[in-house]
Computed example of a mutant assay.
Amino acid sequence: MPEPRVLLHVDGPVASVSLNRPEKLNGVDIAMLRELVTTARRVREDRSVRAVVLRGEGDAFCAGLDFASVMSSPSTIVRSFVPNPLRGQNLFQHAAWVWRELPVPVVAVVHGHCYGAGLQLATAADFRFSTPDARWSVLEAKWGLVPDMSGTASLRELVGGDVARRLTMTGEVLDGTRAHALGLVSGVADDPDVPARELVEAIIARSPDSVAASKALLNRTRHASPRRAFAVERRLQLAMLLAKNTAIARAANVRKEKPAFGERRFGR
Rank of each mutant, 00 (worst) to 15 (best):
S214T: 14
S16E: 13
L36R: 00
G267V: 10
V10H: 01
A202G: 05
L236E: 09
A60W: 08
L199H: 06
G262D: 04
L199N: 00
P4H: 10
V110A: 09
N26E: 04
R87K: 00
E140R: 09
R5F: 09
Y115M: 14
T221M: 02
A164L: 11
D46C: 01
P147K: 10
E263C: 00
V146T: 14
G267F: 02
S69C: 08
M32D: 00
K24E: 05
A179L: 06
M240T: 08
L119F: 10
V146S: 08
R235Q: 12
V49C: 00
F230L: 14
D126E: 13
R156Q: 07
I30H: 14
G116F: 07
P103T: 15
R220Q: 15
E257G: 03
N20C: 14
E45G: 02
L86R: 11
E263I: 02
S80F: 00
V188E: 01
S80E: 01
S214M: 11
A117C: 10
A40D: 02
S210N: 11
T177K: 06
D175E: 03
D66K: 05
R21Y: 12
V138E: 06
K258A: 10
R206C: 08
A247N: 05
F261Q: 07
R79G: 10
A179Q: 09
K24N: 06
A60H: 04
